[in-house]
Design a protein around this nucleic acid. Sequence first.
DNA 1: ATATGTGCAAAGGGTTTGCAGATAT
DNA 2: ATATCTGCAAACCCTTTGCACATAT
Lengths: 133, 133
Amino acid sequence: MFEKMLKDNHLKITPQRLAILKEIQKFGHISIEEIYENIKESNPSMSLATIYKNLASMQEARIVDEVKFPNQKQRYELTKNPHIHLVCEKCGSITDMELETPIQALKDACANTSSYKIKEASIVLIGICEQCQ
Amino acid sequence: MFEKMLKDNHLKITPQRLAILKEIQKFGHISIEEIYENIKESNPSMSLATIYKNLASMQEARIVDEVKFPNQKQRYELTKNPHIHLVCEKCGSITDMELETPIQALKDACANTSSYKIKEASIVLIGICEQCQ
DNA sequence: ATATGTGCAAAGGGTTTGCAGATAT
DNA sequence: ATATCTGCAAACCCTTTGCACATAT
């Protein structure tokens, strides 16, 4: 419930913010340009500056996450449980995958070997999806 | 041996390219701006455009890799064995870590669950390094 | 009523491009 | 000798900022 997420973070509930969140939800991993182009259809006065400002404040509030893929502009997704991103190098499609155990195993291995205190993991696997094989 | 790497990829051996590769080697994970500033000291005529063009061609040739970290400009490193990047969120230091087994376990788990053919992995762990704890 | 948010236009940075002269093969 | 590379300047993004007006609380 987007309204509650915003309220909990002392961010005002505006049509612009709701529209941005709805787009991100709809497309999963979306670029700024795509958000802008999609929203413009129903809300022609929406400005790019507003999108930038809101993505920054909602990222700050941990409502959305930025994700960076090789050779792509950054994209945004709703904040979710830790997960892996699978990117198809042929068609560019992106799949989320929750693999708790191996992710945890990796973090543990790393913590043991390094004496780092691990907080988060950003894992992107590049490959070829079933349809493109 | 940088000369051989370039020759093998039909890239001419120029002082600029060697200087860029030497900087990347020296600093491990370096931004474009840092490469430029460092090289300017010994070679004041080196232009930013040359750095951009060469990073692109040497990335294409798989001599260097671009790496993207959260909230940072992209950086470059020499192409190495698959490894994990550990980033300290306090001091920003970056550590490489070869953890073949857990990386492979993750790729396998993913391949099994998804029917993707996995080719590469980009893994970044964010945490706090020993000194900053 | 007040603090925040929006939209606009301008400014700011980073990156790419075209071209003439220089250099590696 | 020739294809490639370099450096410069301009062009071209994408992103941020300041400000006046609008809106949510």
